[in-house]
Design a protein around this nucleic acid. Structure first.
Length: 885
RNA sequence: GGGCGGUUAGCUCAGCUGGUCAGAGCGCCGGUCUUACAAACCGGAGGUCACUGGUUCGAACCCAGUACCGCCCACCA
């Protein structure tokens, strides 16, 4: 068996074939009639804007690891895939695309434009789904959803209407963040603040009926055209005289009052601020407190409105220049200072956001947030890492109402109608035929659409058929886990919590696993403009999906960013190849097609001469299984991955396979058969253990290993074998390894040709001798010795390389003279190491506090190690002395 | 202005409950095509675990402070 296996693993082709087979066989699909305990997740739906990036690859890999693990471990796994219409983002990319053809959105009717976006959606969704599949994602494609499909749109309307009926949605004129380029309102979260070097203009505002003036400081002189007051702090002694005074607003020659309000920071500027309720959030609030009129001087497109008088029609920044120039001409500009501040930009197009008063729809979130806070406080949902709960609480406790209306064409149209007759607003699940108030039939639907996150917030239950009652919801809600990035905790996680608790009366997920951002190898954020972004598909093409997945998994420390390095990934591709070749070797040495189960291994272990290396690898396998499960349970995917890597390569390949060669190539059929059973069992188990992480190569190999069942995907995830764990076996094996390593080091350090054969002399006690004899052939092969002689007295020749290990003393007899100085140096170095260790142990053991307070076990360990080191020291010194030049 | 995270080998990063935890990958040095694998094997060099105190028998790990770096939130216009 196995002789026809190629020497290196070729992921291309195999991956597609396997995936197609898995999918066609329905292995990914959940079964609502299954008696197994459910495990469910919803895939964070990628936007249909473009292509998958490394962040998606990470996120999907982590989820797939959980899904495959749970599925193998006896759960009825539902993992719902889908895509997000991503309102503003998608509209923008489509518009950009049109612009390349010299067209604008407004060249089309709304319906025509929507049709264009739908076509885009179909194309990009298909592309994205293909990419998700290339990652090996085992989600249930029969339940794939889209945030704007029929069912989800119904869920959106249902939620909207119910929130409206409960008074949690309202519409009104408020100050919102406005993107003049997207020409829509956006939420607070969609504004990104960037530090900028600005200016602070000091402007003289004349006091009415006097020649005096007050000086206000502002970073936005153009908004003065909309000022409706000037404010000072009520306790500010400097401006007591302003009480009852009125101000003449320059350029507009409008009379405005002076208000006294503690929102003014006395230290800022002159302590007098202009108040523009139409264009500043703080001023808007102040305006409400003082009943100030609101004047909007900047329009939806970022140009000045009629209210800006002579500046009408100018772009807001051109208006700024003109206002400043005019003020200067009038002698009203006192001074200009440099001023660093933060400027808000549109998350989607980076245009500077304009705060302005506008008629919009809002969700009153406080009551929803209270529930969402309580649920996490009660531990009904927890975060990994835990500290993200703090971030969540902080935001939830200071939450502001959520502006949900967008002046876009792509999205869920708000289910509200206005009656032309009586101006009534009708909110309904379906289009009303007539006005319930006046009976009028001239109804116009609201043209605004909803914030894209409104529908995302419903994703954990809308995808399960809500608002209908479904078996899926009974079984799979709340979902078991949500894996997502910290960048969307507020946008998404928080809102899913609120909506889930409100409409399903339970949290949407039990655990939130936060993954970091994928950065480049230098830790820089990946971005197109930096030119450092890596296309996951391109590297999958080159390195194979398993290598990419393994790299992401091993680096995925929860909540921590990942510096993705191609070099490192090349290392993990090598690991895949290593697995391939280990399997190739073991398969080449199998004679039987019969699967090997635990019972057969028990029989081997109970039989004559089970072999230390067999017992050792089985003990280690069991330990590794237990630790992998522990790590997966707490979402320490990186630890699990790392453990498996070192077990497979460092122990299974580097030692066990080397040791088992002797069994397999020898002429003892019973021994060969025992080895075949163990290797077959270990290989088959290791493939199952590794499958969630690297699904393709493990399935490919597993199919070649004698096995039961159809696919590795649906075989049980390995359970530890406590009865095979044996500390004594591990220790004995460790001593053999130490001895072999020491002899190899002695050879290498003395530049002994690796091809040269030597004679090994060993001076050790009977127990050690028995141990060595049980591994004699292996030892000979691994250190290139044609003979091992047990003796009390080493030969006197000057061509000995000597050493001391916990197993005993060894000497290697060469057939040529060695450089005594080199050997001396080597032994001296060894002695140095021992001296250091001895010293620290002695110090510890001389410490009464340690003897009294440390656990007896720790003390005993230190003692026995001290004795051991002492013995090694004495013997090493002796050897050094004998080596005298 | 608040809050969070980081500082460990040349580079990028792991290190769980304080006690062989000084680790990985890549890079570097020396040597091997030893019939699973040169995408490999065998060896080696390299670190005051940012700094200062503290707790402890014992600290990379816990506590306090400092210095840098990064991120998030926030209505100083």
């Amino acid at each position: 068996m196995g002789t026809d296996i190629p020497k290196s693993y070729e992921p291309r082709g195999t991956e597609q074939t396997l995936y197609k087979w898995w999918e066609e066989q329905g292995f990914f699909n959940a079964d609502v009639d299954s008696p197994l305990p459910p495990f469910s997740m919803v895939l964070p739906p990628p936007n249909v804007t473009g292509a998958l990036h490394m962040g998606h690859a990470l996120n999907i890999t982590l989820q797939d690891i959980l899904a495959r693990w749970k599925r193998m471990d006896g759960h009825n796994v539902l993992w719902v895939p889908g895509t997000d219409h991503a309102g503003i983002a998608t509209q923008n990319v489509v518009e950009k695309n049109l612009a390349a053809e010299g067209k604008k959105r407004t060249d089309f009717t709304r319906e025509e434009f929507e049709a264009i976006v739908w076509r885009w959606k179909e194309e990009y969704e298909a592309r994205i789904l293909g990419q998700i599949k290339q990652l090996g994602c085992s989600c249930d494609w029969s339940r794939q959803r889209f945030t704007m499909d029929e069912g989800l749109s119904r869920a959106v309307r249902e939620v909207f209407v119910r929130l409206w009926e409960d008074g949690l949605i309202y519409k009104g004129e408020y100050l919102v963040n406005w993107c003049p380029r997207c020409v829509t309102a956006i939420s607070d979260l969609e504004v990104e603040y960037e530090p900028a070097e600005g200016k602070l203009w000091y402007i003289r505002y004349p006091i009415e009926d006097s020649s005096e003036f007050v000086v206000v400081a502002t970073t936005r002189p153009e908004t003065m055209l909309g000022d409706t007051a000037v404010a000072v702090h009520p306790d500010d002694e400097r401006y007591r005289g302003l009480r009852g005074k009125r101000i003449v607003l320059p350029l507009m020659n409008r009379e405005i009052p002076v208000i006294f309000d503690s929102f003014v920071e006395r230290e800022f500027g002159t302590g007098v601020v202009k108040v523009t309720p139409g264009h500043d959030p703080a001023d808007f609030e102040a305006g409400r407190r003082h009943d100030l009129p609101i004047i909007r001087v900047i329009g939806d497109d970022g140009t000045m409105t009629a209210a800006a008088g002579p500046y009408r029609g100018l772009d807001r920044y051109e208006a700024r220049r003109r206002v400043v120039a005019d003020l200067e001409a009038l002698g009203l500009l006192e001074k200009v200072e440099r001023h660093a501040h933060n400027i808000g930009h549109c998350q989607r197009c980076e245009t500077i956001v304009e705060p302005l008063v506008s008629n919009q729809w809002f969700v009153r979130v406080q009551p929803l947030a209270d529930e969402a806070i309580r649920a996490v406080e009660q531990g009904r949902t927890d975060f990994q890492p835990k500290n993200f709960e703090k971030v969540y609480f902080e935001w939830m406790r200071n939450i502001h109402d959520w502006c949900i209306s967008r002046q876009l064409w792509w999205g869920h149209r708000i289910p509200a109608w206005y009656c032309d007759g009586c101006r009534e607003t009708i909110v309904a699940r379906e289009a009303p035929q007539s006005c319930p108030k006046c009976g009028g039939t001239k109804l116009r639907q609201e043209t605004d659409v909803l914030d894209t996150w409104f529908s995302s917030a419903l994703w954990p239950f809308s995808t399960l058929g809500w608002p209908d009652r479904t078996r899926e919801q009974e079984l799979f809600y709340p979902t078991s886990a949500m894996v997502t990035g910290f960048d969307i905790i507020f946008f998404w996680v928080a809102r899913m919590m609120m909506m889930g608790l409100r409409f399903k009366e339970d949290v949407p997920f039990r655990h939130v696993f936060i993954n970091g951002l994928v950065r480049d190898a230098q830790g820089q954020k990946m971005s197109k403009s930096r030119g450092n972004s890596i296309d996951p598909l391109a590297i999958i093409e080159e390195y194979g999906t398993d290598a990419v997945r393994f790299t992401l998994a091993v680096m995925a420390v929860p909540g921590t960013d990942i510096p993705f390095s191609i070099d490192r990934m090349a290392g993990y591709r090598a690991f895949c190849n290593k697995i391939w070749n280990a399997a190739r070797f073991l398969l080449m040495n199998l004679d039987s097609d019969a699967p090997v189960g635990e019972a057969e291994i028990d029989a081997v272990l109970a039989g004559p001469e089970p072999g230390l290396h067999h017992r050792w690898i089985l003990a280690r396998l069991s330990e590794v299984i237990a630790s992998t499960r522990r790590d997966l349970d707490r979402f320490f995917v990186h630890e699990a991955t790392n453990t498996l890597y070192h077990f497979f390569w460092g122990e299974l390949c580097d030692w066990y396979i080397e040791l088992v060669k002797e069994d397999l190539s020898g002429d003892d059929p019973a021994r060969r058969e025992r080895a075949q059973k163990v290797t077959c069992f270990v290989l088959e188990t290791a493939m199952r253990l590794l499958h969630p992480f690297i699904p393709f190569i493990t399935e490919e190999i597993w199919q070649k290993v004698p096995h039961r069942g159809e696919t590795i995907m649906l075989r049980p995830y390995p359970q530890a074998f406590p009865r095979w764990q044996d500390a004594a076996v591990l220790e004995r094996m460790q001593r053999i390894q130490d001895l072999i390593s020491a002899m190899r080091t002695a050879r290498a350090e003395n530049n002994v040709d690796p091809r040269k054969w030597v004679t090994v002399y060993l001076r050790c006690d009977d127990e050690a001798r028995e141990l060595v004899e049980s591994q004699l052939a292996n030892l000979k092969r691994l250190v290139r010795a044609h003979e091992v002689v047990f003796t009390d007295r080493f030969p006197a020749e000057r061509i000995l390389l000597q050493g001391v290990t916990s197993l005993g003393e060894f000497a290697l007899l060469l057939d040529e003279v060695i450089d005594v100085e080199v050997e001396k140096q080597r032994l001296q170095k060894e002695l140095q190491k021992l001296d250091t260790e001895r010293l620290s142990l002695e110090k510890k053991l001389a410490n009464e506090g340690f003897l009294e307070k440390a656990p007896a076990e720790v003390v005993a360990k230190a003692r026995s190690r001290r004795d051991e080191v002492e013995g090694l020291q004495v013997k090493t010194r002796e050897k050094l002395r004998r080596l005298a030049p």
